[in-house]
């Protein structure tokens, strides 16, 4: 029997709200568009990180979701930097930014490709942004699937713990396309590394799903 894994903290951002461990911690007018919402959320949580404003929308969403968890429990410090991993999935990859970038090249008379936009046309840049802010050096993978493939990813994440590739994993789904967005990230670690297990949830597909849809 493999060692029990737990979700010690999780954060969900959707519908102009931010929830940490199931508790609403920030919301703004539902009429506001994503760029305004995410800026207000960033200011509300007093994250002093000017690089945030250079990021594309997808990276901002993933970065802020991760930041909420890390403010509560910073895995770096408790674990070696190389033992913290990030496994994220979504459906649209970086398509939202791809479309924005393509507008700068589709018209021959108005051709102005920008490296600072182009660099965000890869979904894993978001993982890089989280790693840079928090000095995380462990395994990183970006999977693409239409729906949140909880069963597959649960097995995959469990396997990298079992085979000692990681001691702590930031795992979840960060999706953004046009005006639609939704993110959920979980901090997963071994039960033995958890001091206060009262608030934690066992890492298993039913629980991942329950916290995701709640």
């Amino acid at each position: 029997m493999s060692e029990q894994l737990i979700i010690s903290n999780y954060c969900k951002i959707a519908d102009n709200t931010v929830s940490l461990n199931g508790k609403l911690i920030f919301k703004c007018d539902i009429e506001k568009k994503f760029p305004e919402f995410i800026k207000e959320a960033y200011k509300n949580f007093q994250i002093n990180y000017p690089k945030f404003f250079k990021m594309d929308s997808l990276s901002k969403l993933g970065f802020l979701t991760a930041e909420m968890i890390i403010k509560k429990e910073n895995p770096v410090g408790n674990f070696k930097n190389e033992d913290v991993s990030i496994i994220i999935t979504n459906s649209s990859s970086s398509l939202d930014t791809d479309i924005e970038y393509s507008k700068t090249i589709n018209d021959a008379d108005n051709y102005f490709p920008s490296p600072s936009v182009f660099v965000y046309t890869l979904p894993n840049i978001m993982i890089g942004e989280i790693c840079i802010k928090n000095k995380i050096n462990g395994e990183n993978t970006f999977f693409i699937s239409e729906k949140f493939d909880i069963d597959f990813l649960y097995k995959y994440v469990s396997n990298i713990f079992e085979t000692n590739k990681t001691q702590c994993c930031i795992f979840g789904r960060v999706e953004l396309m046009g005006e639609k967005y939704e993110s959920v990230l979980y901090l997963v670690k071994k039960a033995k590394d958890c001091i206060n297990t009262n608030e934690s949830v066992i890492f298993e597909p039913e629980n991942i799903k329950k916290l995701y849809i709640s």
């Binding site: 930097n81 790693c131 000095k135």
Partner: peptide, 19 residues
């Protein structure tokens, strides 16, 4: 096999080769 992150820069490789 193993994957890692430099945690250094989004578009430039780390000069130390750490990652």
């Amino acid at each position: 096999g193993f994957s890692s992150n430099d945690a250094n820069h989004i578009s430039g490789p780390s000069r130390t080769g750490e990652g």
